[in-house]
């Protein structure tokens, strides 16, 4: 039975890549061990509480304010990343300059760096005693220990997502679109916003979504630069830690679950938007 199903999918009955069973097995094992089972454990852990308890935890004022801080900062950070990630990808794809390879490699640094290290060094730089922070302090803007600082940390951890999403699409983007716009009399600005941006939009959206989700979940780097003052600069993951510190596992998972659901809905929305936009690319 099962074998037939596989064969039906392949007209010639010969698989292009051998070892389907093996690779499928590995896929299932990886998915199961590293994603599904841990996620399921969150649901199980949270299901120990009644719905009323759950909503009580999740809608308490402090938790709500944590969500507000996390979501607003992550959203802003993802927007900033969208703009600057696009510019970075553009420069890396469209121009040749010495040190380009090194710069390209550096994009991934935020992935490689332990987030706590990132958080500590960002705080060091952006506090009113740090190099960058001191300059801003002079014009009356404090960065570290404010929501601006949180946003900056989220920008840092999110930028690779946007660059790496946009880069391949930009590489494959046919120059004819730009040339066509030019031949119709359009200048650079109009060409960029009306012609190139729509082409990059699906990839940009994907990068935005990933950066946003990462920002929401980010703890290690944000917690150092955040200040963590309740109702002001407390992020939702910090409240999870706070619940864990009180050995309130189910409360912690309840907060996590709400975060997870929002992230999931967001990714779902972005994915369906992408699928919708994919049909345009057939032309």
């Amino acid at each position: 039975m099962e074998q037939q199903i596989v064969k039906v999918k392949n007209k010639k009955g010969v698989r292009v890549i051998p070892g389907f069973g093996l690779s499928m097995g590995v896929t299932l094992a990886m998915l199961g061990c590293f994603i599904l089972i841990p996620l399921a454990s969150i649901f199980i852990s949270a299901s120990k509480m009644s719905f009323q308890e759950f909503t009580e935890v999740v809608t308490s004022r402090q938790v709500m304010s944590g969500y507000l801080v996390s979501f607003s900062c992550a959203f802003l950070a993802a927007l900033i990343n969208g703009v600057f990630g696009l510019i970075l990808a553009w420069v890396l794809v469209r121009y040749e300059f010495p040190g380009k390879r090194i710069m390209d490699g550096m994009i991934e640094l935020p992935f490689a760096l332990p987030t706590a290290v990132a958080g500590i060094s960002l705080t060091f730089l952006y506090s009113d005693q740090g190099w960058i922070g001191a300059a801003f302090d002079k014009i009356g803007i404090s960065i570290a220990y404010t929501r601006i600082g949180i946003t900056i940390a989220m920008v840092f951890v999110g930028i690779p997502f946007v660059v790496r999403s946009v880069q391949p699409v930009l590489e494959k983007l046919d120059r004819q679109y730009e040339e066509a716009a030019m031949m119709l009399g359009a200048g650079r600005t109009r060409t960029f916003f009306k012609v190139i941006l729509p082409e990059l939009f699906p990839a940009l959206l994907a990068g935005f979504g990933l950066a946003f989700a990462r920002g929401i979940g980010e703890y290690g780097s944000v917690v150092f630069i955040a200040g963590n003052i309740p109702f002001k600069t407390q992020i939702a993951p910090l409240l999870i830690m706070s619940k864990l510190e009180q050995y309130k596992y189910s409360d912690a998972t309840a907060i996590a679950l709400a975060l997870l659901l929002v992230s999931f809905l967001l990714m779902l929305f972005i994915n369906s938007l992408q699928i919708y936009m994919q049909k345009f690319s057939k032309a």
Binding site: E2, V6, G21, L22, M24, G25, L28, A29, G32
Partner: peptide, 11 residues
């Protein structure tokens, strides 16, 4: 070698 094998491997 197919889903049975995959399941086996998973186990």
């Amino acid at each position: 070698m197919s889903k049975k094998a995959a399941a086996l491997l998973f186990c």
